[in-house]
């Protein structure tokens, strides 16, 4: 499987990860190799198989009958104290007057 350098640069833009030219070259090689190995998945017949939706297959939070039976994993709908604004902003790189400050979104 051949993945082009243009593909790599495009995907890096989608992922918002700036790459150096040498990183892009290395990733082109790595991804071509790795996706080549993924081809072996086609050896497994999955024509009548559903995709896995939950790791242990057992419990899905929002199934209605489950909810009625056991309240499943949902807690009571009651107000709890959230983090304070100060706590939320504690790790923000740039703040101003209780807000997070960022560069312009539009040029």
């Amino acid at each position: 499987m051949e993945i082009s350098k243009e593909d790599v640069i495009h995907v890096a833009e989608l992922a918002r990860v700036q790459l150096t030219d040498s990183e892009a070259t290395k990733l082109q090689q790595d991804l071509s190799l790795i996706f080549g190995h993924f081809e072996s998945l086609n050896e497994v017949d999955t024509s009548n198989v559903n995709p896995t939706l939950h790791a242990s297959g057992a419990q899905i939070v929002l199934a209605r009958h489950d909810l009625e039976e056991s309240h499943q994993n949902l807690r009571q709908d009651e107000i709890r104290s959230p983090l304070s604004p100060n706590q939320v902003l504690l790790n923000a790189p740039r703040t101003e007057d209780g807000f997070i400050r960022i560069k312009g979104v539009l040029d």
Binding site: R16, Q18, T20, N91, P93, R94, I102, K103, G104, V105
Partner: peptide, 24 residues
């Protein structure tokens, strides 16, 4: 994303560039 927490470059012409550069 270099906005809410974590490493952030301080320069960049817009939010997206800051994000990509910080992650890079």
């Amino acid at each position: 994303d270099g906005v809410k927490y974590g490493f952030s470059v301080l320069d960049g012409k817009n939010a997206e560039e800051v994000m990509s550069a910080s992650r890079g």
